[in-house]
Amino acid sequence: MVPVSPTGPARSTGTGRGPGRVLVALYGVFAVAATGRSAVQLSLQASEAPFPYALSALAALVYVAATVGLAVDRPWARRTAWTAVGVELVGVLVVGTLSLADPVLFPDDTVWSVFGRGYGFLPLVLPFLGLAWLLRTRPR
């Protein structure tokens, strides 16, 4: 039997369903963008600014993991998504603050510089949406 909630028909708890579809699409765009940027930076100019470029690589990994974690409907995927979105939130807050406090640390922009200003602050909004969506769809 499929459990039916008193307020309406059974709602799928998969993170890649319903509004999650759009969230995964947004994460997917950032996964592609961050991976591309990181690949270019690491292959061509790795020694130029090791710290921000390592951060770019971390961001790419986080976005890919969050995209897959949210898109796939499996317990391991949900755990992956929680971890990735958590790291993303910490990353954007720490890097955003540091990039304002000490711009010398960040000679080249990362996705998270100044809380993702270069990307319409979407990198700051996404982890909150991600966490809210993971909470809302959690299995009961």
Binding site: R17, G18, R21, V22, V24, A25, G28, V32, G36
Partner: peptide, 29 residues
């Protein structure tokens, strides 16, 4: 190359969703 990949993936991802959220994926694209 990157922007070339997006439309097919978006159509595939939109088609897999029975609700209106699938249509919203194409807005994002």
């Amino acid at each position: 190359v990157g922007c070339l990949v997006l439309p097919p993936v978006a159509v595939w991802w939109a088609r897999g969703e029975p609700s209106r959220s699938g249509t919203a994926v194409l807005v994002v694209l």
